[in-house]
Simulated assay, not measured.
Amino acid sequence: MTNSRFVLPTTALLLAAALTGCGQEGDGSTPAGGNPGTNSAKGGKPTVCLVMKSLGNEYFQTMQKGAEEHAAKRGDLTLHSSGIQNETDIDGQITAINRCITDRAAALVVAPADSRALVAPLGRAAKAGLKIVNIDVKLDDGALKSAGLDIPFVGPDNQEGARLSGAALAKALGTGGKVVILEGNPGAANAQQRKAGFVAAAAAGGLTVVDSKTAHWETDEAYTVVSNLLTTHPDLQGVLASNDSMALGAVKAISAAGKKGKVKIASFDNIEAIRPYVKDGNVVATVDQFAAQQAGDGIDQAMKALAGEKLQPWVKTDLKVVTASDLG
């Protein structure tokens, strides 16, 4: 688990960019001689690429660490993991996927920044012979069908997780509570699913959703968005944040407006940086979707595919609502 800082230092961001360019092996070493494909990786082990979203987000730092530990424990593959510098860097993910193709990786595990825009480059990867597993953010079914791709998904029920988190906020505020929704990237399926879950929770709990805005999963953008919303809606009582990074921006904006304790937040991800705010009650709930487990399960599915096994369309991973009582 990473530490509680939610913004990486500049040097760490530069490292993240470097990883996008060259990859990082799960066992801590790099094969000599260039291409890390199935036959040229150490001992003939297959190379599995893990392409994630922003490594400036603690959630994906945790995912990367878990993936590396899982690959090392398995011992039968070479892992190359990479991420992008911000949540909207779709071109960075496309570059990483293209590098996996050029490097002749055997398999690719991807958490896409956009559910449609990544389908075409993944189609090129599939045509090049890579086995592909989709984790975390579901690729768009219509886009996959149009591209003739059948890519299995490993991940949670995002809509249900958001509904559970939103229900905790509804319980805390009571009927009639005025809330806003902080959405993730509009092109990401999990952003749409979490918004739907929050809307369902608000309807069931009698909350009034006065606005819904995207902050693209980012802390700084969420700070600006929530600051503006607090001005527009001075009687605001709650924020439904689609991830913890945005929740952290909301916490900062609420505090700056002098409304700490008066505006409650429900969130999603359970990163370490959010836990102090869960403990003190400013965040009534977050949802653990077990980032390390998702990556490990994705790697396992990729290895099954390489062994010729038929994969399930959806391997559903765990969710757990986390409240102050869970953190002691």
Rank of each mutant, 00 (worst) to 15 (best):
residue 206 G to L: 08
residue 255 S to E: 14
residue 12 A to G: 00
residue 4 S to W: 04
residue 166 G to Y: 11
residue 51 V to T: 14
residue 44 G to P: 05
residue 69 E to K: 10
residue 56 G to P: 02
residue 43 G to M: 11
residue 39 N to A: 12
residue 95 T to Q: 15
residue 144 L to V: 08
residue 50 L to P: 00
residue 117 A to K: 12
residue 243 N to V: 04
residue 22 C to L: 10
residue 5 R to K: 12
residue 82 S to I: 01
residue 310 K to E: 15
residue 79 L to P: 01
residue 312 Q to W: 00
residue 173 L to I: 02
residue 238 G to P: 00
residue 302 A to I: 09
residue 279 K to G: 08
residue 36 P to G: 10
residue 29 S to R: 14
residue 6 F to A: 11
residue 179 V to I: 08
residue 255 S to G: 10
residue 87 E to N: 01
residue 30 T to Y: 12
residue 177 G to P: 05
residue 8 L to G: 08
residue 19 L to E: 00
residue 281 G to F: 07
residue 175 T to D: 09
residue 180 V to I: 15
residue 292 A to T: 11
residue 229 L to P: 02
residue 175 T to W: 03
residue 17 A to G: 14
residue 287 V to I: 15
residue 47 T to W: 07
residue 88 T to G: 07
residue 89 D to M: 01
residue 288 D to M: 04
residue 136 D to K: 03
residue 141 D to F: 05
residue 187 G to H: 13
residue 239 V to K: 02
residue 242 S to I: 07
residue 237 Q to W: 03
residue 245 S to A: 15
residue 26 G to Q: 01
residue 56 G to D: 14
residue 31 P to N: 07
residue 16 A to L: 00
residue 217 W to L: 03
residue 59 Y to H: 13
residue 258 G to R: 09
residue 88 T to V: 14
residue 298 G to P: 02
residue 234 P to L: 02
residue 64 Q to C: 02
residue 14 L to W: 11
residue 94 I to Y: 11
residue 221 E to T: 15
residue 306 L to F: 06
residue 13 L to T: 00
residue 178 K to N: 06
residue 111 A to C: 05
residue 276 P to Y: 04
residue 164 L to Y: 09
residue 92 G to W: 00
residue 107 A to F: 05
residue 2 T to P: 07
residue 70 H to G: 03
residue 86 N to R: 11
residue 228 N to W: 01
residue 45 K to Y: 02
residue 18 A to G: 10
residue 72 A to F: 08
residue 183 E to T: 14
residue 192 Q to C: 06
residue 7 V to W: 00
residue 166 G to M: 12
residue 133 V to A: 10
residue 194 R to F: 10
residue 151 I to K: 11
residue 231 T to A: 12
residue 113 A to T: 13
residue 256 A to M: 13
residue 225 V to P: 02
residue 109 V to T: 10
residue 101 I to N: 02
residue 194 R to M: 09
residue 190 N to Q: 12
residue 224 T to S: 15
residue 201 A to Q: 06
residue 113 A to D: 01
residue 13 L to I: 01
residue 290 F to W: 05
residue 227 S to T: 14
residue 6 F to S: 10
residue 243 N to W: 03
residue 224 T to Y: 13
residue 126 A to Q: 13
residue 162 A to N: 11
residue 80 H to V: 04
residue 158 N to A: 08
residue 320 K to D: 09
residue 96 A to Y: 04
residue 302 A to V: 09
residue 199 V to F: 01
residue 300 D to E: 13
residue 266 A to W: 06
residue 76 D to R: 01
residue 45 K to N: 13
residue 63 M to A: 15
residue 179 V to W: 05
residue 316 K to C: 02
residue 124 R to M: 05
residue 109 V to R: 04
residue 154 V to S: 12
residue 95 T to D: 07
residue 274 I to Q: 08
residue 79 L to F: 02
residue 118 L to P: 06
residue 111 A to L: 08
residue 324 A to D: 06
residue 265 I to V: 10
residue 139 L to Q: 03
residue 25 E to L: 09
residue 251 V to W: 06
residue 165 S to E: 07
residue 70 H to F: 09
residue 35 N to W: 05
residue 132 I to H: 04
residue 7 V to E: 14
residue 219 T to H: 15
residue 21 G to E: 14
residue 165 S to G: 08
residue 262 K to D: 10
residue 3 N to R: 08
residue 76 D to W: 00
residue 70 H to T: 00
residue 181 I to K: 05
residue 295 A to T: 03
residue 69 E to T: 10
residue 85 Q to L: 15
residue 305 A to Q: 12
residue 269 D to C: 11
